[in-house]
């Protein structure tokens, strides 16, 4: 690779510059579109609803089961329902958390997820 005298740049850089001058490499106009297309509003709504309700359902099932196990009829259920609601909100929060570096538990779901 003979380097031209007076040109401190390496060969690959000069090649790149030349290619760009000739318009051979279409320059990337914008940052890569992030994989999957944006899920529709309906899809997002369905996901939020499902995430909210599923945690509540699991909490109800656990509360009801513990009550049945220990014969403490309504108490575990009463305790678990608010916890389930909170867990549902946590699920939704994870979906929309603004910054992965934000304080708090942020195992943010990355990657495309066009759930309906």
């Amino acid at each position: 690779m003979g380097q031209e005298p007076g040109d401190p740049r390496g060969f690959s850089e000069r090649l790149e510059a030349a290619r760009e001058r000739q318009g051979l490499d279409p320059r990337p106009t914008q940052p890569e579109p992030s994989g999957a297309p944006d899920p529709s509003a309906f899809a997002v709504g369905a996901r939020v609803a499902l995430d909210l309700v599923s945690a509540l359902l699991v909490a109800c099932a656990i509360g009801w089961g513990l009550d049945r196990l220990f014969g403490t009829k309504p108490w575990f259920l009463i305790g678990f329902v608010p916890l389930g609601g909170a867990a549902g909100v946590l699920n939704v929060w994870r979906m929309f958390a603004p910054d992965p570096k934000a304080p708090g538990p942020d195992r943010r779901r990355t990657g495309p997820d066009p759930g309906r």
């Binding site: 995430d51 945690a55 699991v58 909490a59 549902g88 699920n91 994870r94 538990p105 759930g115 309906r116």
Partner: peptide
Amino acid sequence: VPIEILSYLSRLISLSVRLFAN
């Protein structure tokens, strides 16, 4: 911690219901 555990377990419902309901 119980909220986190419930959130973890809620995957059971959300994953299965999503496929089945669709």
